[in-house]
Simulated scan of single mutants.
Amino acid sequence: MRTDKKEGTDNDNKIYIVPEKNAAPVGGLRALYKHIQKNLQYPEKAIRRGLEGRVFVEFVVEKNGTVNQLRVLKGIGPECDREAIRLIQSFDKWIPGEHHGQVVRVKQSFPVVFKIVK
């Protein structure tokens, strides 16, 4: 009988999608939106091409509040996709999620909006 644990089956490593208490940015969504607004660097190539839209980034908020495993779920172009990941990764202030009174890893997704202001 094998007794070794497979990754993802141990409750310590389980990633929750809908925990009892979801992970949240420190300061709330307002702080995250402010961070994005202040730090977004619209790629020049995307501006020239007229690219606008939402890039949906998926990531895991770890038990210590750091962000890991970032990936684009739906993008609008490689330049904007990279910038959206950079923005989410640079906001490293998260309150981890909880499930049954335990701090847990939580999968999140968040849209980053790219709109050319004329």
Rank of each mutant, 00 (worst) to 15 (best):
L40W: 03
R54E: 15
F56G: 09
E62A: 06
H100L: 01
R48C: 04
R82P: 06
T66W: 00
R54A: 11
P78L: 08
L51N: 09
K38N: 10
P25T: 11
A84N: 05
Y33Q: 09
W94A: 15
F56Y: 14
F91D: 15
Q41G: 02
E98V: 09
F59D: 15
A46P: 03
R30C: 12
V55L: 07
K38V: 00
A31E: 13
E83H: 02
Q69F: 12
G50S: 06
P25D: 10
W94C: 11
R71Y: 01
K38L: 00
I88W: 01
V57N: 03
E52K: 05
E44W: 08
E98H: 04
G101Q: 05
N39R: 08
K45P: 00
T66H: 06
A84I: 07
G53W: 06
D92Y: 09
L51H: 06
A46T: 06
L32P: 11
H100M: 02
A46M: 02
K34G: 13
A46F: 03
Y42L: 09
E58Y: 14
E83A: 07
L87Q: 08
V67W: 05
G75E: 06
V26I: 01
V60W: 02
R54G: 12
V57D: 04
K38C: 05
N64H: 00
I85T: 13
L32S: 10
R54L: 14
G101F: 03
R82S: 14
L29Q: 00
K45Q: 04
E52M: 06
K63W: 07
L29E: 00
P43M: 01
E98I: 07
H35P: 00
G77K: 04
V103H: 02
E44A: 02
A31S: 05
A31M: 09
E44C: 05
H99S: 12
